[in-house]
Amino acid sequence: MIEHDPQKEAETQMPEASAPTELIASVRNLTVGYASGIILQDVSFDVPRGSVFGILGRSGCGKTTLFKAMIGLIEPYEGEIFVDGEKVEPLAEGKSESILRKIGVLFQSGALFSSMTVAENVALPFRQYTDLNETIIEQIVLLKLSEVGLLGKERLLPSELSGGMQKRAALARAMALDPKILFFDEPSTGLDPVTSAELDRTILRINETLGTTIIIVTHELASVLDVADRVIMLDGDEKTIIAEGDPRHLRDASTDPRVQAFFRRSLSA
């Protein structure tokens, strides 16, 4: 069981380097890659608390690699990542457990456990991290499912849900412990435009009502322009950030041809 003091967590500050504005995540000089080679080199950026932050770029530019590094799934070669004042350590070393309570992750495929019902999937974090009795857990699970519009589906297995429902069930699980940051990896993948827009609305509602910081990895322009306050754009050739700022401003004012090509969906870059 991880000690959890909400007040202490609320008082936690970012390291000195990122202290001037209220930041919830900070990436410093990150170099990350795989055995096949370096994917991103010397990447630095900050995520303001309570924002919807987008990580953009073309396929293969390192978005998912950065996402995995930020949640501790892969170890950076160099650099540091801070989440809510704590340094992210590789999960395999078991040093980042207190961070795990602060983050929720919605994977591209949803990653629901196929042997468990929807309710059991959402209840899993409570059983892992709290001593709550089953009745309270069930009540919270029902509240979470109500929040994502899945009431009545509690007893279904993931395989009995549509793609959009699976994403929403996975979102309910990601939100279970009221995380301070929610990470979304390509949330619109495999969804029709209407379902995708519904998911975007849910993301915005969570951000507005609960104040949860949202970090979205995506290449869906419509989604980014709808929900993100701030974005960074990665480039696979330069292996670093090529643009940062308000996505609407980047679309309208950026002079970088690669950024323009991305927002205009053209091949000119």
Binding site: I137, E138, L142, L143, S146, L151, E154, D178, T209, L210
Partner: peptide
């Protein structure tokens, strides 16, 4: 004000626990 986000859930009717976590 800072907790109204959570409390909006209270206003929406949520069903009573009926053992959905118990194995059928």
């Amino acid at each position: 004000d800072k907790f109204k986000g959570f409390l909006h859930l209270f206003e929406e009717p949520a069903p009573a626990p009926s053992g959905v976590l118990r194995p059928p």
